[in-house]
Amino acid sequence: MAFTLATWNINSVRLRAGLVGRLLQEEAPDILCLQECKSPVDKIPLDAFAALGYPHMIARGQKGYNGVAILSRLPIREVGAQDFATLGHARHVAGELENGVVIHNFYVPAGGDVPDPEANEKFAQKLTYLTEMRDWFHADRPGRAILVGDLNIAPREDDVWSHKTMQRIVSHTPVEVEHLAQAQDAGAWVDITRQDIPEGQLYSWWSYRARDWDAADKGRRLDHVWATPDIANAGHSSRILRTARGWEKPSDHAPVFASFDL
Rank of each mutant, 00 (worst) to 15 (best):
R14H: 08
F3H: 09
T165S: 02
A51V: 04
S171N: 02
D212W: 03
A119K: 15
I31S: 09
A94G: 08
D217V: 03
L23H: 11
T193E: 02
G111H: 01
A90F: 09
L46C: 05
R220D: 00
L202V: 05
G95T: 13
T131M: 09
A183N: 11
L15I: 14
K63C: 04
D47S: 15
L262V: 09
S72N: 11
T228E: 09
L130P: 07
V93H: 04
L52D: 08
F137C: 05
A48R: 14
P55V: 13
R134Y: 02
L71Y: 05
T173P: 02
L71V: 10
V148N: 03
V256E: 04
P198D: 10
Q184H: 05
V41P: 10
R211C: 00
R73G: 07
R60D: 11
P45D: 09
Y107P: 06
G112Y: 01
E176C: 02
M1Q: 08
Q184D: 06
F260K: 08
R73E: 07
A232R: 05
G149C: 12
Q25E: 13
P55K: 09
L19W: 01
A215I: 10
G67D: 05
L23N: 01
A110G: 03
D116H: 05
D140A: 15
I197F: 04
V177M: 02
N105F: 10
S171P: 00
P198M: 10
G88H: 08
D217E: 12
I146W: 07
L262M: 14
D47A: 15
H224S: 09
S72F: 11
S171A: 12
G235W: 02
V148G: 04
G246Y: 03
L130F: 09
L222A: 01
H89L: 09
I103V: 14
D191S: 09
A69I: 10
E248F: 11
G112V: 01
F123K: 01
A69T: 15
L74Q: 09
E121D: 14
D159H: 00
H138G: 02
N9M: 12
D42Q: 14
L97E: 06
V256M: 06
A154L: 02
M57S: 12
D140Q: 15
A17W: 06
A145S: 15
G88E: 06
T128Y: 01
P40K: 12
H236D: 05
D140S: 15
A124Q: 13
L222G: 00
M1I: 10
N99T: 13
S237N: 15
H236Y: 11
S12L: 09
W226H: 14
R156G: 01
A244F: 13
R194Q: 09
I10P: 07
H224G: 08
A119H: 06
E157D: 15
A145Y: 04
L23W: 11
G200K: 11
E157M: 07
G143S: 14
W136G: 03
Y129H: 14
A244D: 06
R141Y: 08
K38D: 08
Y203W: 15
D252K: 00
T243Q: 15
H224A: 09
E121Y: 07
L32Y: 08
S162L: 00
E199H: 10
W136R: 13
W8H: 04
L74V: 10
G143D: 07
